[in-house]
Amino acid sequence: MTNLLEIRDLRVHFGLVRAVDGVSFALPYGPYGVGLVGESGSGKTTVGRAIVRLGPAVGGEVLFEGKDVLRLRGRALKEYRRHVQIVFQDPDNSLDPRMKIGDTMAEVLTTHRIVSRRQAAARVRDLLEEVALDPAFASRFPHQLSGGQRQRVAIARALAVGPEALVLDEPTSALDVTAQARILALIKRLREERKLAYLLITHNLAVVSELCEMTVVLYLGKVAELGATGELLFHPAHPYTAALRSAVPEVDRAARLARIALAGEPPSAVSPPSGCVFHPRCPLCIDRCRVEVPVLREVAAGRMAACHRAEEVLAGADLSLVRDVMPDGAAAG
């Protein structure tokens, strides 16, 4: 078996909202990083939560070493959580403000019977050292730590059960840029030391390019494109990936790309557009895109894209779009 986790045709619906609508990809054994990128409402966090069973799935499978975890209950589910853990965006909300750091972490260790209550304190100190924190922090409260330090605690707590995989949900988005750089360096070190596999959920393509071998681009609950990160970012096969990439601000003037403006606003998942969900905003939209849903297909070696015109995009088709005078009126009306 080559993959630690396999997500097959995952569907998560909230009433009429199809937050995740048939998403498939795999997370290989570590050390390995898969990036899950997309904008607000694309369903990336919902996918992450479904994988660790914090959110409901209405269909599909999440296979961990071949077993479907969506059906697990009770003790088996608890056992699964020793293997796959999650780190959230905002450590302020994921750490109990009334518990000392040491107690927060010891709780995980004793709940999962990793060590006895007596040995917990020593293990907590080791874990804090592993994420480059002073072991004395065990006796502090979360509010006495900086945002970056709190996120290190959250990572250490996730590592406490010795997981093979982590779901990292925007782990640096709430942090200052220098704190972010230090957390990214920490993730790089841990992946090698612990042979970790991780699913990194982020809107930041630069973070993905530094930490992930593979990238999955989501748009309105569906996979737009997936493939090897470098190839995908530098030679996108889906117009949405190209637009996303071109919108990333760059410090270095030479690295800046001509921006591909998208028409209108992101559509609603309650009433998704017909055909290709991206068609109302796509600079390459043709009649076929309005009626026929593009299937995710292999468009180059190791690259999948859901676009009728992926070959043209790969070949470098012109994606510059003449802006409508009032795109929003039309899209929102």
Binding site: A181, L184, V207, S209, E210, L233, F234, V251
Partner: peptide, 10 residues
């Protein structure tokens, strides 16, 4: 500290 889009990845 600003993350940059790099080709080589990890």
């Amino acid at each position: 500290a600003v993350p940059k889009i790099v080709y080589r990845g990890v």
